[in-house]
Design a protein around this nucleic acid. Structure first.
Length: 606
RNA sequence: GGGGGUGUAGCUCAGCACGGUUAGAGCGUUGGCUUGUCACGCCAGAGGCCGCGGGUUCAAGUCCCGUCGCUCCCGCCA
């Protein structure tokens, strides 16, 4: 019989062939005969008495059998992690052997029947271990996922997606799938590419994001669109960036302003975070808005961790004449940041030296500091003029006041002076490291901010020309007129949502006007013809009545990673690739047979 | 493409600076003992291409060169 019908419409009895109860329900079934099914996780043999812990997806039950029982030997021989179906009477444990650490610690099952459904070999690692190397975990991911923490992450991921769907649909968004086999787009990351069998020598690309499709949907008159969208980028990985595929909450709204997008996303993100981490501090909305320029000045990064109370000061302008030798090159080709840290003068000298070593590991030439104590000291003191030192002391005092330390108590002011390539990294990383070491990072908090007003263009030394600093489809402020400014001053209606130092969301109000698009692309060196050719779909569509629109895309795995409290994306991805883009379990990517190559019209060279 | 870390028993790791007995530990596993444990306990055993290739040396897990895997970072990521 292939299918067992349910008893009636309201009560489902599931899995009736292998079990009569799930572990979580056994406490309601004391003194009755039950059958449970699952994995034997642990086994304790006391000679005359044997305990087996059977786990299913809802919990566990201790099963017990006496030496006198005819099934004792069979039970004793079952390897752990074998899959079994066990029947017996559910009883209360004797009072002296209750276990209050377990939900079912007052119960046990007296084994009267056992069926081995699948015998397990001995495992490559123990499931209770939590220090297993990642390579072995990925090779045996199906076992790794059997571990409790990974089960939690998988469940969390499913529930977060469910919640997002509900919220988006409540906001009148339609969920719409867009193609996976599509065209390569010239700007942006490297594409994954699929050869076409029918059109030999031509290739599909996997979408880096459904960007063009979602904008086309706006032209189609879809009021609001969203999708839990798979995205593919062939770029090198980081701990918060995986190679291969990842997922975004992709959304787009017609007739929308930046504030409209902010309102929706703040509502959705806040609700999701609150639902899954109700006991954490979560910034109320509206979230803080910080211009890109301010972010760079105060945090030296466009994704500041606001749990960190320390702020940087760009003090380059203090050095206009009479520039100390050690700062000369930074003033000419970079910046000088100051990081005032209250109370730090109480730390040992080793702390300061360790920070210098840390800065050097980021390719800094060094890291200066001035100690404000009873007197002013530190290696830089003599190199700086009295005027400058006084100015820095004023900053230090102001910071002490602002952070509610006693004004007269001292501190240490770090100084990072490097060329532009390095100074932002050094300043932002030192800010974070100092705060971490001093335990200044606010605990149990999700702190959000929008970074807005990104520059539309940035100068490329390589190309000796301007290029888009982010999304080429963003609308510049003041539209066509805005593009007449010096490219370095043109700001885009482009924004990122940042949480605890992670970029969660990135979006923009889009450019829906062909005229403005031609002009925007002209600045990076595209002719009208080139734009018509490379973006024919979009340009063409926008000439048939395109509503103003904008939206955003949020990294789903990053949201889940933050909710799960891990620092690595792979922990919340069921089957991630390794850093070099390999699947260690199924052995991808693989070589292609000569026949397949021929069929696809490709030749492989090495 | 570049830099750092790492690779020794099924798993987690010690040993390497300063080359020299038979390469160790904990967990797991196998066998034995054990009637109230819950990561049970006790006793005994098996288990090693010291990532791979080359070199130096009387002698290499240890030193040198190359190479590969995993990982973190830079570049890259509209």
């Amino acid at each position: 019989m292939p299918y067992v019908n349910t008893k009636n419409k309201t009560e489902f009895s599931y899995d009736v062939k292998y079990r009569t109860s799930l572990c979580k329900d056994l406490h309601t079934k004391i003194e009755s005969e039950q059958t449970v099914a699952g994995w034997i996780r642990t086994k304790r043999d006391h000679g005359g008495l044997l305990f087996l812990n059977l786990h299913d997806h809802t919990g566990l039950i201790q099963c017990v059998i006496d030496q006198q029982h005819e099934l004792f030997l069979q039970c004793d021989k079952i390897p752990i992690e074998s899959v079994v179906s066990i029947s017996g009477k559910i009883t209360e444990r004797p009072t002296e052997s209750l276990n209050d650490k377990l939900n079912s610690g007052h119960l046990e099952l007296q084994i009267s029947k056992i069926e081995i459904l699948s015998k397990a070999n001995s495992l490559p690692f123990a499931l209770h271990q939590n220090d297993i190397g990642e390579e072995i975990r990925l090779r045996y991911r199906f076992l790794d996922l059997r571990r409790e923490i990974m089960q939690k992450h998988i469940r969390l991921r499913s529930e977060v997606i469910h919640e997002i769907r509900t919220l988006m649909m409540n906001h009148q968004f339609l969920e719409i799938h867009t193609p996976i086999l599509t065209a390569s787009s010239p700007e942006g990351a490297r594409d994954y590419v699929i050869p076409s069998r029918i059109h030999k020598g031509k290739f599909y690309a996997l979408p880096q994001a459904p960007q063009q499709f979602k904008q086309l949907l706006m032209v189609s008159g879809i009021y609001r669109y969203f999708q839990i969208a798979p995205c593919f980028r062939d770029e090198d990985s980081r701990s918060d960036r995986v190679p291969g595929d990842f997922y975004q909450l992709d959304m787009e709204m017609s007739f929308a302003t930046q504030e409209d997008v902010f309102n929706i996303m703040e509502n959705v993100i806040h609700k999701v975070f609150f639902k899954f981490q109700p006991n954490m501090h979560i910034d109320d909305y509206p979230f803080k808005r910080i211009s890109y320029k301010t972010a760079i000045n105060e945090y030296a990064t466009d994704k500041p961790d606001l749990r960190n109370p320390l702020k940087l000061y760009d003090i380059t302008h203090l050095f206009t004449n009479d520039i100390p030798k050690i700062f000369e090159s930074a003033v000419q080709t970079g910046k000088i940041y100051a990081l005032p840290v209250p109370n730090l003068h109480l730390q040992t000298r080793k702390f300061l030296l360790d920070m210098q070593t840390f800065a050097q590991s980021l390719q800094a030439k060094g890291l200066g500091y001035i100690i404000f104590d009873e007197k002013v000291s530190g290696p830089l003191t003599n190199a700086l003029s009295k005027n400058i030192v006084n100015h820095l002391q004023t900053i230090m005092k102001k910071v002490n006041t602002d952070m509610q330390y006693d004004t007269n108590k001292g501190g240490v002011l770090f100084i990072a002076s490097e060329n532009l390539q390095i100074v932002h990294r050094v300043a932002s990383e030192v800010r974070q490291k100092v705060a971490t070491e001093l335990d200044l990072i606010k605990k149990n908090s999700y702190m959000f901010c929008w970074i807005c007003d990104f520059p539309m263009y940035e100068w490329s030394e390589e190309k000796k020309g301007w290029e888009f600093s982010h999304n080429p489809f963003s609308m510049p402020y003041e539209g066509l007129q805005g593009l007449n400014k010096n490219p370095s001053e043109i700001l885009a209606q482009q924004y990122d949502l940042v949480c605890n130092g992670y970029e969660l969301t990135s979006g923009a109000i889009r450019n829906h006007s062909p005229d403005i698009m031609y002009k925007a692309f002209e600045i990076v060196g595209y002719t009208k013809n080139q734009v018509d050719k490379e973006f024919s779909g979009m340009i063409n569509a926008f000439s048939y009545g395109a509503p103003p629109h904008g939206g955003s895309a949020s990294g789903l795995e990053r949201i889940i990673m933050l909710l799960a409290g891990t620092k690595n994306l792979r922990e919340v991805i069921p089957f991630p690739l390794t850093q070099s883009g390999e699947d260690l379990m199924l052995d991808a990517p693989k070589e292609l047979s000569k026949e397949r190559q021929k069929e696809l019209g490709i030749t492989v060279t090495k």
